[in-house]
Amino acid sequence: MDQYIDIKVRVWRQAGPKAQGHFETYELKHVFQGASFLEMIDILNEQLVAEHKDPVTYDHDCREGICGMCSMYVNGHPHGPDSAITTCQLHMRKFKDGETITVEPWRSRAFPVIKDLMVDRGAYDKIMQAGGFVSVNTGGVPDANAIPIPKPVADEAMDAASCIGCGACAAACKNGSAMLFVAAKVSQLALLPQGKIEAAARAKAMVAKMDELGFGNCTNTGACAAECPKSVSLANIARLNREFLCAKFQD
């Protein structure tokens, strides 16, 4: 049964991109364990506002685990100490009475801090703009059933497509690599006949953009897949490497 707990929250505070950051510890009393982690931050912020202090800035939106907006490092894990969830799906029942909880922004060179826990993930959009699409215009496309796709292939593409672009993979990676993110999109589109035509060019363009934006290299440690809220598989990285190598050989 959910209880009420008293906790301490140790939060990374940073006034702006260039400001020196530091940890600040706040006490919160009587927090219901049925509350989500973000609701706990809301309670903290109401408390700070009541004290005329600056509330903690953080990204959040849908609060149902799908928009990919929330981005907190909780007790050393992206999205906190539970598997296959986003921070908004983390509940206070995962924490004990008297516990000190450490909250940090995504830690990655390619995601600079904007303020407190809010980071700039524009690099992921830029990678997508480099090639994360099928080049079709609106209209003039064939009937949706014109090209049958084997169910296992469609299902595999769907699993790869389930990436929500939250950035946990790059944040979790000791190299700050965005390989899982890139691999998920390259895989999804390479698996489907609609995306296969541009598969080689896409893999090259997205990898080049990833390198250019300051993401690290992949050394297959697998932290990305372990921390991914949507359980995107490491197998996608193998597929990306295959697509990328094939493209290079074609050059």
């Binding site: 496309v141 064939p142 949706a144 090209i147 169910k151 609609q194």
Partner: peptide
């Protein structure tokens, strides 16, 4: 039609159709 052309992975039956 448009979404399938973009690579939206709709659920399919064993015969490969939507």
């Amino acid at each position: 039609d448009q979404c399938v052309a973009q690579g939206v992975p709709f659920a399919r039956e064993y015969g490969g159709l939507l």
